[in-house]
Design a protein around this nucleic acid. Structure first.
Lengths: 241, 241
DNA sequence: TTTTTACTAACGATCGTTCGTTATATTGAT
DNA sequence: ATCAATATAACGAACGATCGTTAGTAAAAA
């Protein structure tokens, strides 16, 4: 699989196994607070609970979501939910951690073994955008409900945000050292990249209203960033879609 | 006052009278639902109520803010609040409308009589950024609590968002017709501009941590956008700060 | 004294959470 | 393979707390 030329369909196929891997990790990490024994059962219900939480919260907010709403959405009773987490706040923390792990794991795994800096930049841009499409409800949720987190968890969320920004800054910086990119400020460039990537999942209604697909937006971002950095030798790598 | 060269200090001086004007408008529009007679009293308390709402909501969310919290923050009793709005939802609607009016009024007023398209672009960028600094709590609030609005009010919020985007798209388009800007897609350019502007008030912690002032960010945005559009004749207009 | 503004106590509704009970699944002896 | 016995999972009524809101009363202004 050539990651540089991947489109969204390729991406989804690629990460399906990774997704269940990370669910196993999440279960393992919360083994002590979950009062259900069979892992199969936990994963099945945890996924239902997470999905329902995202759906309801993204419509009316996490605070406004009652445990009765959630129970109905997840197909459990309100009392039964409490076998999977100690309280509502803990559910929020679990869901945020789970999503962050998924993002970091996949993003760094795909970027790691890119052959050169131009590929690395392009793969990082596409992977981040495709992740935010695949996990759009989580990205939106993570952003809107950050204020409800406890202080240490909010700190983790901020650090995670800065970590991905640093990834982009590092790629830009290394490409500049190799003489491939123009000497723009790496940190500000990374900040702009993040802002544009964020637009995709925060203003989704705008893009769907204008019939812009995720593959179109991916190509637009790649072209925009490469033009901004005046990437040399782009004629050797051709965009697909 | 030369708007093209204004900095944030100039801006705040300029709009102080406009701010009270708009408070009078807001009072007038809600005259029928407010059970207090003296306009002086209304404005004094309404400002306290709005400010407290923004402060508490931006920390814990509008839903999580109880009317008892708000009463304490605004220096009134919980029952006394209800002389100024019929219910919690109406307070949200009032506050959103009030802020939108302020943004639209000031933005279009300052942009209107710019002498040329390059000035128009620069004034629009700076005004929008300075507004989002001056009214940062409202901007953040407006964005985070949009989901709590009623359907017609959410529609108004979206339209307002698109209106400012259209303003930027129109400036870009007109500048291109005059042969001043490169032929980039006006709508996508406007979308990027909005995304970068939004970063300022949504990720404020990032910029304050990095000691970036609003004037520095203004200059950065202006330079970035003008480089992107390859603005000609920028040597005739010089940045101040 | 009259009018205007603000306060306090109280109401019904709904919240997160608990707990005694029921239903379901697994086990082990026949 | 069958069926009690046991262990596991899910249920749902109930609790105290807190929510938005109201109404009768007190304070302040005119």
């Amino acid at each position: 699989m050539d990651l540089v030329e991947m489109n969204y369909a390729d991406f989804t196929k690629m990460i399906l196994t990774l997704k269940t891997d990370i669910y196993h990790q999440t279960v393992q990490e919360n083994r002590n607070i979950i009062h259900v024994n069979k892992e199969q059962t936990i994963i099945k219900n945890l996924e239902k609970i997470f999905d329902a939480t995202l759906e309801i919260s993204n419509e009316k907010g996490f605070q406004a979501m009652s445990m009765r709403d959630l129970a109905k959405g997840a197909g459990l009773s309100s009392g039964g939910l409490y076998a999977y987490f100690p309280g509502k706040m803990d559910l929020l923390t679990m869901l945020q951690k789970h999503g962050r792990k998924m993002v970091q794991e996949i993003l760094f795994k795909l970027v790691k073994d890119a052959p050169d800096h131009v590929s690395k930049l392009r793969i990082a841009l596409k992977t981040h955008l495709y992740l935010s499409e695949f996990m759009q409800p989580w990205f939106y949720f993570s952003y809107m409900e950050a204020k409800n987190l406890s202080e240490p968890e909010r700190h983790n969320a901020i650090e995670s945000e800065l970590t991905t920004e640093k990834l982009f800054a590092a790629i830009v910086s290394q490409g500049q050292d190799a003489g491939l990119f123009e000497p723009r400020d790496p940190q500000l460039t990374a900040a702009i990249i993040k802002a544009i990537l964020q637009d995709w999942y925060l203003k989704r209604w705008k893009f769907s209203r204008r019939n812009i697909s995720v593959d179109q937006y991916a190509n637009f971002i790649v072209e925009f960033v490469e033009a901004f950095l005046d990437v040399h030798g782009t004629e050797t790598i051709r965009l697909k879609n």
